[in-house]
Nucleic acid binder design. Structure first.
Lengths: 147, 147
DNA sequence: ACAATGCTGACCAAGTTGGTCGAGAATAAC
DNA sequence: GTTATTCTCGACCAACTTGGTCAGCATTGT
């Protein structure tokens, strides 16, 4: 349900958040720091750009930047941009009204309950929080780490 | 994350639960009542049999039956049987210890949180509950329905 | 002008999904 | 013990998704 698309895309946003304020970050840097194929990353960045999460500039010194503060980027929107619907199964859609039942899918309420639960959790988590957690982890592993 | 495998498999179990106590239920009946391809259903029943959810008998008058009361069949186990791991992403496994991190997947805690949340919910729902809800829905739609 | 950088779309191999099909095995009824 | 019924198992298949590569173009700083 969440493929490497979402995983990699989130990693890329974290990278941009970590290096926010240092000017555009280049594709190649993100790719090497986050262990993502450079050309694959292209497609993910394109999607993130289309949905307004990042801003990109071309030419020498160009690169990618967050379009908004990391605290305003919630995981739900990012993942839905990258993955399409997070619905656990076809018959449940975000925008389906309550009375719009697939008559063959009597278990819809179960899938919807799962779906809603997931989306609620994801809506509470921002990219900024992921950055904090990552930095806490780095501290724990290598307290003297710095560049 | 949940494909028609899980969906169809659950439908089949509901069908068996509804007709429990009436002797073996035949593949063809399940398939037609629940709108599943008969030969595809074969594979799902095979899996459910392997994992001890149902019992099957061959020959005329044969068919399939629940191996335990419907109240004892929780959705979590059924779905994990049919779908394999329900993990939303590769780096999270049910049996991975807390200190077993993929060093490249710093966001593991997010996926794990989602995963654990889902599994908790699914563990609380039994096939019996699905049957009750289905019957409640039938009442609501066609109060005079009976066979 | 040229080099650095992003942008885009075509293409591809491998795996998954949702099936179909056919040969065979068990068993109840005759 | 033959036959009809029913499940069992494995091979096969088309369509789609995933995770990627690649070439060529667009933009822009120097």
């Amino acid at each position: 349900m969440i493929s490497t698309k979402g995983d990699y895309g989130v990693r890329a946003l974290i990278d941009l958040a970590v290096h926010a304020g240092e000017g555009p970050v280049q594709r190649a840097d993100i790719a090497s720091r986050r262990h993502i194929s450079e050309s694959y990353l292209d497609h993910l960045l394109a999607q993130l750009r289309r949905d307004g999460f990042i801003r990109s500039t071309r030419g020498p010194g160009g690169g990618h930047e967050l379009a908004k503060p990391a605290a305003d980027l919630c995981l739900l929107h990012v993942l839905e941009s990258l993955e399409g619907s997070l619905a656990p199964i076809g018959c449940v859609h975000e925008d389906s009204a309550d009375d719009e039942h697939d008559p063959l899918c009597g278990q819809q309420w179960v899938w919807r309950e799962l779906y809603d639960g997931m989306r609620e959790r994801l809506a509470e988590i921002s990219v900024a929080e992921l950055v904090e957690r990552e930095q806490a982890r780095e501290q724990a592993i290598a307290p003297s780490y710095s560049i």
